[in-house]
């Protein structure tokens, strides 16, 4: 009996250990291949080069074009998701009647459950043609359209995290503001939002990390042309889209071209890892503040 209990505990512990192995596996795989890559390519060239042509005869391994493409789509997405998401959070927390809130929240979640490949289709087939009506020299592939669609996708992400942050602000603060004769609007923007600022920061950072790692929307609608530019109307390529492009073809293992996807992957991993940990750090400090 006692032995059975011990075995069960060990088996369960093993399940939990899988998560550690996953992390070790991710870091291991990325490092091993990336080290092979950096034997061929200097890390300085990689980080500062403005040309990315590993699949061409004239090979260049500067990641900056992919980085610029990633940042461009990410900032467009945040530009959409932040104002809308934050407005929703404030509205839900300060204005919305309870009933309406109960309907609205699950509806918002629907935005997050639509598969990203479907959003990619939307960006390519609907948003880009629509934007062309206003921006005539918009290219068929561009950063603007997938950026906007990605922004729509992460609205519930921003709104629910921000709403949690707003809800965590003690009610006494709101009462105090009303007590001094503030309007609802003043209370929301002068008192509640500043008080919840660290939680809102967390939601922005996590949204950033999410947008940077998003793949299918940009792979479908942003193009596969790595150029170092911040022009949202021309075709670009993000880090993630590059990995998809190479994986779609048949690149033999062991070649530098094969290793590039791991070098690109480790760049992505490091950036999102740092962002996630910044958000942890803020979250911990912020939780202490209210306890």
């Amino acid at each position: 009996m006692n032995i059975k209990e011990k075995i069960i505990e060990k088996v369960l512990a093993l399940c939990a250990l899988i998560t550690i192995l996953t992390t070790v596996g991710i870091i291991g795989v990325l490092l091993v291949e990336a080290v092979g890559f950096f034997r061929e390519v200097s890390i300085i060239d990689f980080l500062t080069g403005t040309e990315w042509t590993p699949l061409f005869a004239d090979k260049n391994y500067g990641i900056l074009p992919l980085v610029s493409g990633t940042l461009l789509t990410t900032f467009i997405a945040i530009g959409v998701a932040l104002p809308v998401g934050l407005t929703i959070a404030i509205y839900l927390n300060e204005y919305a009647p309870k009933r309406f809130k109960k309907v609205l929240k699950p509806l918002l979640e629907v935005l997050a459950v639509v598969p990203t490949v479907v959003y990619g289709f939307f960006a390519l087939m609907i948003v880009t043609p629509f934007l062309k009506l206003f921006i005539t020299d918009l290219s068929g592939f561009n950063a603007l359209s997938p950026g906007i669609v990605m922004g729509i996708m992460i609205i519930p992400f921003v709104s629910s995290l921000s709403e949690d942050a707003l809800a965590a602000v003690p009610d006494s603060l709101r009462q105090a503001s009303y007590g001094m004769g503030s309007t609802r609007f003043q209370t929301a923007f002068r008192v509640m939002v500043p008080a919840a600022s660290s939680g809102i920061m967390v939601s922005i950072i996590l949204a950033l990390s999410r947008a940077i790692g998003e793949t299918m929307i940009v792979a479908i609608a942003a193009g596969q042309t790595p150029v170092f530019t911040f022009d949202p109307t021309v075709p670009i390529e993000t880090i993630t889209a590059y990995i998809v492009k190479v994986s779609s073809g048949d690149v033999p293992q062991g070649t530098v071209a094969y290793q590039t996807i791991f070098a690109a992957g480790i760049t992505l991993f490091v950036v999102t890892f740092i962002l996630n940990n910044i958000s942890f750090w803020i979250k911990n400090r912020y939780q202490e503040k209210y306890e």
């Binding site: 291949e33 790692g213 998809v244 992957g265």
Partner: peptide, 13 residues
């Protein structure tokens, strides 16, 4: 919060 494509690289490796 690791991007899903990174899991793809893990699976590939």
């Amino acid at each position: 919060s690791v991007p899903s494509i990174i899991y793809g690289l893990l699976g590939l490796g």
